[in-house]
Design a protein around this nucleic acid. Sequence first.
DNA 1: CTCCTAATTGAAACAGAGTTTCAATAAGCC
DNA 2: GGCTTATTGAAACTCTGTTTCAATTAGGAG
Lengths: 164, 164
Amino acid sequence: MPENAELTIFPTWTAGRPGYAQRIREAFQEHLEKTGLRLTSQRQRILDYLLTTEKHLSLNDIYQALRKHGVGRVTVFRTLKMLEEAKLVDHVTAAGGTSRFEVKLERPHHDHLICVHCGGIQEVRWPELEKIQDKICKTMGFSVAWHRHEVFGRCSACAEGKAS
Amino acid sequence: MPENAELTIFPTWTAGRPGYAQRIREAFQEHLEKTGLRLTSQRQRILDYLLTTEKHLSLNDIYQALRKHGVGRVTVFRTLKMLEEAKLVDHVTAAGGTSRFEVKLERPHHDHLICVHCGGIQEVRWPELEKIQDKICKTMGFSVAWHRHEVFGRCSACAEGKAS
DNA sequence: CTCCTAATTGAAACAGAGTTTCAATAAGCC
DNA sequence: GGCTTATTGAAACTCTGTTTCAATTAGGAG
Ligand SMILES: [Mn+2]
Ligand SMILES: [Mn+2]
Ligand SMILES: [Zn+2]
Ligand SMILES: [Zn+2]
């Protein structure tokens, strides 16, 4: 499996959505004001990088991309945490167990199909399935906060070329 | 969240199943012979500990329990890996992100409801849900090898005492 | 614009799970 | 018993994630 596989999120989620980048930046500023935080060049860069690179990025991916612009690892870590609290960003636990981040604003919840061969991540929505999940949890007296449903296997592309 | 929460697997899975311990030990030996590995006291102890303690144990839980009998951390690590390859043991990703292990032989597939408050793990089978998963994956041309469906929230016990 | 203060930053050090290395040890076979 | 090879475990290392704290900066008050 390639070390940095093609980890696309809904292609053109940001791009295909007029004003999306604008809106998420505004929501970001709103959150900053509301919580008494400050707008710094680092925080701006990190959000912008997430917006322009439509992929599932790890903390380290972002750090490596922005260190040349003087953004530290710790700041990336803290900013991602803050963006998650602000519900502007979310994370997936990828194959290796590390967290990968994606913009969340206006995006519906989805789960991931992870190809063990090429490392590619496909996104999937199955409200029908989640309805059953919620129903069963309810009958067990378990109140769901969030869930992680990750399916591992071979994507259509890799299933054809059956070479290991 | 308590550091070592009550992490029960199906109560009496091993206990309520006459000869289970016996069968899994035999399967273990078979695997050793088949792959040219050797039966050591350490490997025996680790498997036995998993069998007698019907819980979802972390690598460290097992190490802490067996170090007094002269079993090293590395050996626990390697043995768990081997047991997973032999399909005798499986792991769950618990609340903190660490792996917890459980015996697998003859046990039906199940998923986990993980309480973020007390750390307790409940097991759940929902074939209906998984049927939908497989159906949708199929239509997407994705061939499922395995999946991990973990639901985080509050168990019934913790939901009542609403203290944080 | 300047000053002030509290928020922010990032190097460094730390934590914890997981993994490799390698010399010493033990299993299984003759 | 003796030989060969797998196994073991201390130590060192990797990687992700996290805390600490002195230096820096945002942004509001003057
Ligand atoms: Mn996604
Ligand atoms: Mn289980
Ligand atoms: Zn693939
Ligand atoms: Zn609970």
